[in-house]
């Protein structure tokens, strides 16, 4: 037993998401469109005489964006999903089952998340490749970047889970989802790498947890550097630990509230 139930949960979510092929196809089309827009945006910028901007060539810039986009959009509308469970009290009915609800949700979600990550990366990668060709990558470092990405997705999950639990007090999950996403878009460095930011803003954004979801992993993907790698993993783990602690605290107080109100 032990961890196998979580693995099963992960598998079921994979099957389940295959049923929703419309979501999948239209989702990848939409992501394809955004990457397509950014290809043109960067072409316009680099076209006016820049060869390398802050260490990024144009293809590095586009591949950077493909990576951030793939990570950030991978969990889908997780906050809304958790919000529904929380507000309907359904999460409480799952309490008497012999598993940790949060971990179970993590496993369930990771199945879909990884699948979506791969799909987006493929779609985006094809577009980037067609317009700009490949990017120079040291294949040996890819497994290391892989670890950073998994941790980034985990941190992403933790923050979304926390916000999902918050919907118990602040009911509008959609609004929370929207705002969280926008913060990652801009301050997490999904749209633009922090090198483009004014220095003061870059410094603040670099230490915030949001940039460990998007900027740091994607930068390691296009420009690998061992020191940065170690530093990123270390800080990712710290943020994950911190958010897990917060989830534990708020989850407990949420459970208490429901058992008092009877769900």
């Amino acid at each position: 037993m032990g961890l196998t139930k979580y693995w099963e949960s992960c598998k079921i979510s994979l099957y389940n998401s295959l049923v929703y092929k419309a979501d999948f196809i239209s989702n990848s089309l939409f992501i394809g469109l955004i990457i397509f827009i950014f290809v043109y945006l960067w072409k316009a910028v680099y076209g006016s005489g820049h060869g390398v901007i802050e260490g990024f060539t144009i293809s590095m810039m586009v591949w950077y964006f493909v990576m951030t986009e793939s990570i950030v959009t991978a969990p889908g509308r997780l906050i809304e999903e958790i919000g529904e469970d929380v507000q309907s009290g359904e999460i409480a009915t799952k309490l008497n089952k012999p598993y940790n609800s949060v971990l179970f949700k993590y496993a369930y979600n990771m199945g879909q998340t990884l699948l979506r990550f791969i799909l987006t990366f493929l779609v985006g990668g094809i577009i980037a490749f067609l317009f700009l060709g490949g990017v120079e990558i040291n294949w040996l470092t890819l497994p290391l970047v892989g670890i950073v990405i998994i941790l980034a997705l985990t941190l992403h999950f933790c923050m979304m889970m926390l916000l999902g639990i918050f919907t118990f007090w602040f009911e509008d999950a959609k609004a929370l989802n929207f705002l969280y996403n926008k913060i990652i878009f801009v301050f997490g460095g999904m749209l633009l790498p922090l090198e483009i930011f004014p220095q003061w803003l870059a410094k603040i954004s670099a230490v915030m947890p949001f940039s460990f979801v998007a900027y740091h992993p994607a930068r390691l993907f296009v420009i690998f550097n061992l020191n940065n790698f170690i530093r990123t993993i270390f800080l990712e783990l710290i943020w994950i630990a911190l958010f897990s602690g917060l989830i534990a605290i708020f989850y407990k107080s949420f459970i208490k509230k429901i058992s008092i109100n009877g769900g």
């Binding site: 910028v45 509008d172 959609k174 609004a175 929207f178 705002l179 926008k182 913060i183 878009f185 801009v186 749209l191 633009l192 483009i196 930011f197 004014p198 803003l201």
Partner: peptide, 25 residues
């Protein structure tokens, strides 16, 4: 009210993105 505020905040974040962009380029 919440939705209205959310929408405005959303628009503002996009403007911040463009502000960063044009400050640089």
């Amino acid at each position: 009210v919440v939705q209205t505020i959310t929408m405005v905040l959303n628009d503002i974040t996009w403007l911040i993105f463009w502000w960063i962009f044009f400050t640089k380029f």
